[in-house]
């Protein structure tokens, strides 16, 4: 079924969808959670740790929104603070040290907008992740599983491959935010959603993502099995590249977006 863009936004935001923690639980065996940024505190919005993707040790980082009201509050509705991004970066650098690939599951309406977040440098935390991920000498795959909310999602999205669930969305601004800024009318969000080209098929067409993952049997063992196999094969092929070749191609991947000759 083909949904309108705003219907897809609502689907992507639905509390019924599998969360980051569900993906970790069902694609990674022997997962061991690693907490904290070693600087300020542990951000519960981002889950990170080590485990096996089939027989391959990986570092996995997931933004988790939680299912129940209690979980959602504990996870800050999947809106990370700077310490969440710093924890993610710490684990990525650790993965680089031990030559482990990095797998990110991204699902956020955006980086948290709060007083403390600004005091602790939300912008700096995101900027540092972008710069460091660009040079990370180990393969990175990011999978957008629900909402890909602007810089808060991109901070875990500077990867060699970016995949998107069929009903996930990825956008520079929320349709509501876009409509209220441009037309002073948040109720025109459906129109903004169409214009922003935020659906998986648009992102694929625009070369923002490499692959769209079908949602047949979303959340079922078959679904996770297919995803696990696909991720595994992709990591195996990325691991054949030298670190220099890998980071060169990652740079060129983003370099091509909006490239102009002058």
């Amino acid at each position: 079924m083909i949904l309108g863009a705003y219907e897809t936004v609502k689907t992507a935001r639905s509390g019924q969808r599998p969360t980051g923690a569900d993906y970790v639980r069902n694609t990674i065996s022997g997962f061991f959670e690693l907490h904290g940024d070693r600087r300020f505190r542990d951000d519960p919005a981002i889950l990170g740790g080590v485990g096996y993707l089939k027989d391959l040790p990986v570092t996995v980082i997931a933004i988790d929104k939680g299912h129940t009201a209690k979980e959602r509050i504990a996870r800050n509705f999947g809106a990370p603070n700077p310490e969440g991004y710093r924890k993610a970066l710490r684990l990525m650098k650790q993965a680089e040290k031990f030559h482990r690939p990095v797998l990110c599951y991204v699902d956020t309406s955006g980086a948290y907008c709060g007083i403390g977040a600004e005091e602790r440098g939300q912008g700096q935390a995101i900027a540092e992740n972008l710069m460091e991920m660009m040079a990370l000498k180990t393969p990175v795959i990011s999978v957008l599983i629900g909402e890909g909310g602007s810089g808060g999602a991109l901070a875990l999205g500077v990867a060699d491959r970016v995949w998107m669930m069929e009903n996930a969305v990825y956008s520079v601004i929320s349709p509501e935010g876009c409509a209220s800024i441009l037309w002073k009318d948040a109720s025109r969000a459906p129109q903004a959603a169409e214009q922003l080209q935020l659906t998986a098929s648009c992102c694929l067409k625009n070369g923002i993502v490499e692959s769209v993952v079908p949602e047949d049997g979303l959340g079922s063992p078959d679904f996770y099995g297919r995803l696990t196999d696909a991720l595994y094969d992709e990591f195996v092929s990325l691991r054949t590249l030298s670190a220099t070749e890998l980071t060169h191609r990652r740079y060129e991947r983003f370099r091509a977006m909006g490239r102009r000759r002058d």
Partner: peptide, 8 residues
């Protein structure tokens, strides 16, 4: 749209 975001 996303082309702007990717400039980051």
């Amino acid at each position: 749209g996303l082309f702007s975001l990717m400039q980051m």
